[in-house]
Amino acid sequence: MAGLLAILVGVLFGAGVYLLLRRSLIRLIFGLALISHAVNLLVFTTGGLVRGNPPLVPPEAQVPPAGHADPIPQALVLTAIVIGFGLLAFTCVLVKQVVKTLGTDDTDSMRANEE
């Protein structure tokens, strides 16, 4: 399964890079979103994949059951998801303002305006 997820990471990242290389600022936002998905998955798979055994302590026990998933990558990814959302929201509004101010979402013609 790790192999499949690795391929998915590759597809998400590749699609993200392709979108970053477009001239459209809107596609840039999509690219950022896909790349953060890719990175989250990458960190997640690094911790090793465990099915159906989350790091939770059952009501009658003191520690999680043996063989539980590693909590550390999960904690890292959880943080990353939230930060990624902050970034996405900020980029969205920034792009909106840029397009409104300059009248285009084409990065090339923005450069022409500037000169």
């Binding site: 597809v11 590749g14 798979t45 690094t46 302590v57 520690v63 550390i72």
Partner: peptide, 29 residues
């Protein structure tokens, strides 16, 4: 994308130090 996939595969071979995970699991409750 291919490079990232390679990285993800290579990452699975890295064995993380289980010490921290064990501590968190034991101390959590």
């Amino acid at each position: 994308g291919g490079t990232m996939a390679l990285l993800a595969i290579a990452a699975t071979t890295v064995s993380l130090d289980p010490e921290a995970a064990r501590f968190f699991a034991a101390a959590s409750y």
